[in-house]
Computed example of a mutant assay.
Amino acid sequence: MTTVLVVDDHAMFRAGMIAVLSAMDGITVVGEAPDGATAIRLVGEVRPDVVLMDLRMPGLDGLTATARITEQHPGVAVVVLTMNDDGDSVFAALRAGARGYLLKEAGADDVERTLAAVMRGEAVFGPRVAEQVVGFFSGIGRSSPQAFPHLTVREGEVLDLMARGLDNASIARRLFVSEKTVRNRVSDVLAKLQARTRAEAVARARDAGIGGEAGR
Protein backbone atom coordinates (compact mmCIF):
# COMPACT_ATOMS: atom_id res chain seq x y z
CA MET A 1 0.00 0.00 0.00
CA THR A 2 1.35 3.43 -1.02
CA THR A 3 0.36 6.34 1.23
CA VAL A 4 0.06 9.82 -0.26
CA LEU A 5 -0.18 13.38 1.09
CA VAL A 6 -1.76 15.93 -1.28
CA VAL A 7 -0.50 19.53 -1.02
CA ASP A 8 -2.22 22.33 -2.94
CA ASP A 9 -3.71 25.67 -1.96
CA HIS A 10 -6.88 25.11 -4.00
CA ALA A 11 -9.41 23.07 -2.04
CA MET A 12 -11.32 21.96 -5.14
CA PHE A 13 -8.15 20.65 -6.79
CA ARG A 14 -7.21 18.77 -3.60
CA ALA A 15 -10.67 17.23 -3.44
CA GLY A 16 -10.52 16.17 -7.09
CA MET A 17 -7.03 14.68 -6.76
CA ILE A 18 -7.97 12.84 -3.58
CA ALA A 19 -10.99 11.35 -5.40
CA VAL A 20 -8.75 10.24 -8.29
CA LEU A 21 -6.16 8.70 -5.96
CA SER A 22 -8.77 6.98 -3.82
CA ALA A 23 -10.04 5.14 -6.90
CA MET A 24 -6.59 3.62 -7.52
CA ASP A 25 -5.73 0.17 -6.25
CA GLY A 26 -3.02 0.17 -3.62
CA ILE A 27 -3.16 3.94 -2.96
CA THR A 28 -4.29 5.48 0.32
CA VAL A 29 -4.51 9.25 0.89
CA VAL A 30 -3.37 9.95 4.44
CA GLY A 31 -3.74 13.72 4.47
CA GLU A 32 -4.01 17.02 2.64
CA ALA A 33 -2.40 20.41 3.15
CA PRO A 34 -3.08 23.92 1.75
CA ASP A 35 0.48 25.21 2.11
CA GLY A 36 4.09 24.19 2.60
CA ALA A 37 4.22 24.73 6.37
CA THR A 38 1.25 22.46 6.95
CA ALA A 39 2.76 19.90 4.58
CA ILE A 40 6.01 19.76 6.56
CA ARG A 41 4.12 19.28 9.82
CA LEU A 42 1.87 16.55 8.40
CA VAL A 43 4.78 14.65 6.86
CA GLY A 44 6.26 14.38 10.35
CA GLU A 45 2.95 13.17 11.74
CA VAL A 46 1.64 10.74 9.10
CA ARG A 47 4.90 9.77 7.32
CA PRO A 48 3.50 9.31 3.79
CA ASP A 49 5.39 7.40 1.14
CA VAL A 50 4.79 10.15 -1.44
CA VAL A 51 3.92 13.85 -1.29
CA LEU A 52 2.16 15.38 -4.30
CA MET A 53 3.37 18.99 -4.06
CA ASP A 54 2.17 22.16 -5.75
CA LEU A 55 4.79 24.91 -6.12
CA ARG A 56 3.04 28.25 -5.83
CA MET A 57 1.18 28.52 -2.55
CA PRO A 58 0.67 31.31 -0.02
CA GLY A 59 2.99 31.33 2.96
CA LEU A 60 5.67 28.69 2.61
CA ASP A 61 6.03 27.76 -1.07
CA GLY A 62 6.35 24.28 -2.51
CA LEU A 63 10.04 24.52 -3.36
CA THR A 64 11.04 25.41 0.19
CA ALA A 65 8.72 22.73 1.58
CA THR A 66 10.19 20.15 -0.79
CA ALA A 67 13.74 20.97 0.28
CA ARG A 68 12.88 20.71 3.97
CA ILE A 69 10.88 17.50 3.61
CA THR A 70 13.56 15.71 1.59
CA GLU A 71 16.23 16.85 4.06
CA GLN A 72 14.29 15.88 7.18
CA HIS A 73 12.62 12.76 5.75
CA PRO A 74 14.83 11.33 2.98
CA GLY A 75 12.61 8.26 2.68
CA VAL A 76 9.64 10.37 1.56
CA ALA A 77 9.38 10.91 -2.21
CA VAL A 78 8.15 14.34 -3.31
CA VAL A 79 6.46 14.58 -6.70
CA VAL A 80 5.74 18.09 -7.94
CA LEU A 81 2.29 18.49 -9.49
CA THR A 82 1.95 22.01 -10.86
CA MET A 83 0.91 24.29 -13.70
CA ASN A 84 4.48 25.62 -14.02
CA ASP A 85 6.47 24.13 -16.89
CA ASP A 86 9.24 26.76 -17.06
CA GLY A 87 12.81 25.55 -16.85
CA ASP A 88 13.68 27.48 -13.69
CA SER A 89 10.86 25.80 -11.74
CA VAL A 90 11.77 22.34 -13.03
CA PHE A 91 15.46 22.56 -12.15
CA ALA A 92 14.82 24.25 -8.81
CA ALA A 93 12.43 21.44 -7.87
CA LEU A 94 14.97 18.79 -8.82
CA ARG A 95 17.69 20.47 -6.81
CA ALA A 96 15.29 20.74 -3.87
CA GLY A 97 15.06 16.95 -3.96
CA ALA A 98 11.87 16.25 -5.92
CA ARG A 99 11.75 12.76 -7.43
CA GLY A 100 9.16 13.61 -10.03
CA TYR A 101 7.64 16.56 -11.87
CA LEU A 102 4.21 16.42 -13.46
CA LEU A 103 1.98 19.10 -14.90
CA LYS A 104 -1.60 19.34 -13.68
CA GLU A 105 -2.77 18.44 -17.16
CA ALA A 106 -1.48 14.88 -16.53
CA GLY A 107 -4.12 12.18 -16.60
CA ALA A 108 -4.90 9.72 -13.84
CA ASP A 109 -2.87 7.02 -15.59
CA ASP A 110 0.19 9.29 -15.63
CA VAL A 111 -0.18 10.00 -11.93
CA GLU A 112 -0.61 6.31 -11.13
CA ARG A 113 2.47 5.34 -13.17
CA THR A 114 4.48 8.09 -11.51
CA LEU A 115 3.56 6.93 -8.01
CA ALA A 116 4.54 3.37 -8.88
CA ALA A 117 7.84 4.52 -10.39
CA VAL A 118 8.94 6.70 -7.48
CA MET A 119 8.13 3.85 -5.10
CA ARG A 120 10.67 1.82 -7.10
CA GLY A 121 13.23 4.57 -6.55
CA GLU A 122 12.96 6.04 -10.04
CA ALA A 123 12.76 9.71 -11.04
CA VAL A 124 9.82 10.57 -13.28
CA PHE A 125 9.02 13.56 -15.49
CA GLY A 126 6.10 14.34 -17.74
CA PRO A 127 6.91 14.38 -21.48
CA ARG A 128 7.25 18.18 -21.85
CA VAL A 129 9.30 18.42 -18.67
CA ALA A 130 11.55 15.54 -19.70
CA GLU A 131 12.43 17.32 -22.95
CA GLN A 132 13.63 20.36 -21.01
CA VAL A 133 15.70 18.28 -18.59
CA VAL A 134 17.37 16.27 -21.33
CA GLY A 135 18.01 19.34 -23.48
CA PHE A 136 19.51 21.36 -20.63
CA PHE A 137 21.86 18.74 -19.25
CA SER A 138 22.94 17.42 -22.64
CA GLY A 139 23.85 21.00 -23.58
CA ILE A 140 26.04 21.38 -20.50
CA GLY A 141 27.54 17.95 -20.92
CA ARG A 142 28.68 18.60 -24.47
CA SER A 143 30.70 21.69 -23.65
CA SER A 144 31.69 22.56 -20.09
CA PRO A 145 33.67 19.50 -18.97
CA GLN A 146 35.57 19.24 -22.26
CA ALA A 147 36.33 22.95 -22.55
CA PHE A 148 37.31 23.51 -18.92
CA PRO A 149 37.99 20.12 -17.29
CA HIS A 150 39.52 21.75 -14.20
CA LEU A 151 36.12 23.16 -13.18
CA THR A 152 33.89 21.16 -10.85
CA VAL A 153 30.40 20.17 -12.03
CA ARG A 154 28.82 23.00 -10.01
CA GLU A 155 31.38 25.53 -11.29
CA GLY A 156 30.61 24.38 -14.84
CA GLU A 157 26.90 24.93 -14.21
CA VAL A 158 27.54 28.42 -12.86
CA LEU A 159 29.77 29.31 -15.83
CA ASP A 160 27.17 28.00 -18.26
CA LEU A 161 24.44 30.11 -16.68
CA MET A 162 26.72 33.16 -16.54
CA ALA A 163 27.33 32.74 -20.26
CA ARG A 164 23.58 32.53 -20.84
CA GLY A 165 23.26 36.03 -19.40
CA LEU A 166 21.89 35.20 -15.95
CA ASP A 167 22.85 37.40 -13.00
CA ASN A 168 23.73 36.00 -9.56
CA ALA A 169 20.16 36.23 -8.25
CA SER A 170 18.79 34.32 -11.25
CA ILE A 171 21.54 31.69 -11.00
CA ALA A 172 20.75 31.24 -7.30
CA ARG A 173 17.08 30.62 -8.08
CA ARG A 174 17.96 28.25 -10.91
CA LEU A 175 20.37 26.19 -8.78
CA PHE A 176 18.30 26.53 -5.60
CA VAL A 177 21.22 27.91 -3.59
CA SER A 178 21.94 31.25 -1.88
CA GLU A 179 23.33 34.27 -3.71
CA LYS A 180 26.36 34.10 -1.41
CA THR A 181 27.07 30.58 -2.66
CA VAL A 182 26.79 31.77 -6.25
CA ARG A 183 29.17 34.66 -5.59
CA ASN A 184 31.69 32.22 -4.13
CA ARG A 185 31.41 29.90 -7.13
CA VAL A 186 31.75 32.81 -9.55
CA SER A 187 34.95 33.83 -7.74
CA ASP A 188 36.23 30.25 -8.01
CA VAL A 189 35.44 30.19 -11.73
CA LEU A 190 37.25 33.49 -12.35
CA ALA A 191 40.29 32.26 -10.44
CA LYS A 192 40.46 28.93 -12.28
CA LEU A 193 39.99 30.59 -15.66
CA GLN A 194 42.47 33.31 -14.70
CA ALA A 195 39.86 35.83 -15.79
CA ARG A 196 40.04 39.32 -14.32
CA THR A 197 36.35 40.07 -14.76
CA ARG A 198 33.04 38.29 -15.13
CA ALA A 199 32.77 39.60 -18.70
CA GLU A 200 36.13 38.05 -19.54
CA ALA A 201 35.04 34.68 -18.15
CA VAL A 202 31.78 34.87 -20.11
CA ALA A 203 33.66 35.72 -23.31
CA ARG A 204 35.97 32.72 -22.85
CA ALA A 205 32.98 30.46 -22.17
CA ARG A 206 31.17 31.60 -25.30
CA ASP A 207 34.33 31.18 -27.36
CA ALA A 208 34.32 27.57 -26.13
CA GLY A 209 30.71 27.11 -27.23
CA ILE A 210 29.16 27.43 -23.78
CA GLY A 211 26.02 29.46 -23.20
CA GLY A 212 25.45 30.17 -26.86
CA GLU A 213 21.68 30.00 -26.43
CA ALA A 214 21.37 32.78 -23.89
CA GLY A 215 18.50 32.45 -21.47
CA ARG A 216 17.54 28.95 -22.60
Rank of each mutant, 00 (worst) to 15 (best):
M12V: 15
F13R: 09
R14K: 07
G16E: 15
G16I: 05
M17G: 07
I18H: 07
A19L: 05
V20G: 07
S22M: 08
M24R: 13
G26Y: 03
G26C: 06
T28A: 12
V30L: 07
G31M: 11
E32C: 04
E32I: 03
E32G: 10
A33R: 11
A33G: 12
G36S: 12
G36C: 05
A39W: 00
I40H: 05
R41C: 02
R41Y: 02
L42T: 06
L42R: 14
L42I: 13
L42K: 14
V43K: 04
E45R: 12
R47N: 12
P48L: 13
V50T: 04
L52Y: 02
D54H: 10
L55V: 03
P58H: 13
P58F: 14
P58T: 03
G59A: 06
T64G: 12
T64H: 14
A65L: 10
A67C: 12
A67E: 14
A67G: 15
R68V: 04
I69P: 09
T70L: 05
P74N: 11
P74E: 11
P74Y: 07
G75P: 01
G75N: 12
V76W: 08
A77W: 08
A77H: 15
V78S: 09
V78C: 14
V79S: 13
T82V: 11
M83A: 15
D85T: 10
D85M: 09
D85R: 11
D88N: 15
S89I: 03
S89G: 11
R95K: 14
A96I: 02
A96E: 05
G97V: 04
R99V: 03
R99D: 02
Y101M: 08
L102Q: 06
L103Y: 06
L103D: 05
K104W: 03
E105G: 13
E105M: 12
G107R: 06
A108F: 02
A108V: 06
D110N: 03
A116L: 10
A117D: 04
A117M: 01
V118Q: 02
V118R: 02
M119E: 06
M119T: 10
R120N: 06
R120P: 01
E122H: 00
A123C: 01
V124F: 00
V124H: 00
F125E: 05
F125G: 04
F125H: 04
G126R: 07
P127T: 03
R128C: 00
R128F: 00
A130Q: 11
A130P: 01
E131F: 04
Q132K: 14
